[in-house]
Amino acid sequence: MKLQKPNDVMLQVSMRVITLFIFAFSFYLFLAGHNNPGGGFIGGLMTASAILVLYLAFDMKTITKAIPFSFTTMIGVGLLIAVATGIMSMLFGYPFLTHFFDYFLFPLFGEVELTTALFFDLGVYLVVVGAAMTIILAIAEDDK
């Protein structure tokens, strides 16, 4: 895979639309994880594949501009979120990584369950996306 500027207008146009759907779906998978198949791992991998598709269709520069943060930082942030979720419960006197949940009533959505496990899963999600992208980009960028 060469990540120089290709000239595939059709591909680029269709990818813009398709990746949007993949992103939406990956986000759904991530949120649905607690009750249906999905979760941080699956959502993260799906997002990573969406970004990969973008890289395939466009060149490196464009995407780096479009996604203006480093994936390496994303790993760190993910790990921090996961650890912080664990420590939060310690602050309330529960063992490390105890999660809580409750049901809330929202307008439009109706009754929604909110759980601190979601934050932990968010950490997992970020680490998975970050790690997968870091690994692949590290090889792809290495043109020497």
Binding site: F41, I135, A138, I139
Partner: peptide
């Protein structure tokens, strides 16, 4: 599920190691 993700990490690492070794 855990194992799949870990083995992905390990495979990636091995691959890159092979790549660097070859270089």
């Amino acid at each position: 599920l855990t194992a799949i993700v870990i083995s992905f990490g390990v495979t990636a690492f091995l691959l890159v190691m092979a790549y660097r070794t070859f270089k």
